[in-house]
């Protein structure tokens, strides 16, 4: 326990690193994922194809392989992103956005067909149908899965530890090497820092779901 308190400065710094990576790449993934979802439901064929292809490809690629590409392969084809934080942001954003897209799309699909029919029958266009009628309803359904995507995203930031970004898991590695006897304490301490992020998100999801369940 003493080790955990003594080294709390390091752990806190690492926690902030994890948190900032989670927030920055999470926000970017939400934006890019929403765009992808719009592409996947849009009437324009090539956009649909692109969205589908992107999601299929990225969802079936391990995150580690995604990181590997940006760290080792991209420089050899002439694209050199700054190592550390920004590479992690790029990889995490591209990866998580495909899951965001799927969550949103399932939300859009969950809206009753009658809603869209009604909107069309009073003459709304595709854009109006989507923004005025379908999305406000889809949003509710999509939030719980979106939160579970974000929880997975939080845990996935740990992969950045293997690619030159000092966050919680990397700090565990360093601290365990420094205090080999206190490995278990350090493990639980680091685990706790993850739970600090993920458990409130989970509770939030459960809360929202109860609200949505009443609204339906």
């Amino acid at each position: 326990m003493g080790t955990f308190i003594d080294e709390f400065g390091t752990i806190w710094g690492a926690f902030l690193a994890t948190l900032s990576l989670t927030v920055v790449s999470g926000a970017l993934a939400l934006v890019w994922g929403t765009l992808l979802a719009v592409m996947r439901v849009s009437p324009v064929g090539p956009l649909r194809t692109f969205g589908t292809g992107y999601v299929e490809l990225v969802r079936n690629t391990p995150l580690t392989v995604m990181f590997f590409f940006w760290v080792f392969v991209a420089p050899s084809i002439g694209f050199v992103p700054p190592l550390g934080f920004w590479i992690a942001v790029i990889a995490m954003t591209l990866y998580t956005s495909s899951f965001v897209c799927e969550a949103l799309r399932s939300g859009v699909n969950s809206v009753g067909v009658g809603q869209a029919e009604a909107a069309r029958s009073i003459g709304l266009t595709f854009g109006q149908t989507l923004s005025q009628v379908v999305l406000p309803q889809a949003w509710r359904t999509a939030i719980p899965p979106l939160i579970s995507v974000l929880i997975a995203h939080t845990k996935n930031t740990s992969v950045a530890a293997g690619f030159a970004y000092f966050e919680l898991v990397a700090s565990m590695q360093r601290l365990t090497n420094k205090h080999p006897a206190d490995g278990i304490v350090i493990f639980f301490g680091i685990g706790l820092m993850y739970l600090v992020i993920t458990i409130p998100l989970g509770l939030l999801a459960a809360r929202i779901e109860r609200k949505v369940a009443f609204a339906r």
């Binding site: 996935n156 930031t157 740990s158 565990m172 590695q173 365990t176 490995g183 493990f187 993850y194």
Partner: peptide, 15 residues
Amino acid sequence: RGLPVLLLMFLAKLV
């Protein structure tokens, strides 16, 4: 479920 898999792997390997 709340812990990253990588953390668990490091637990087994380092600890």
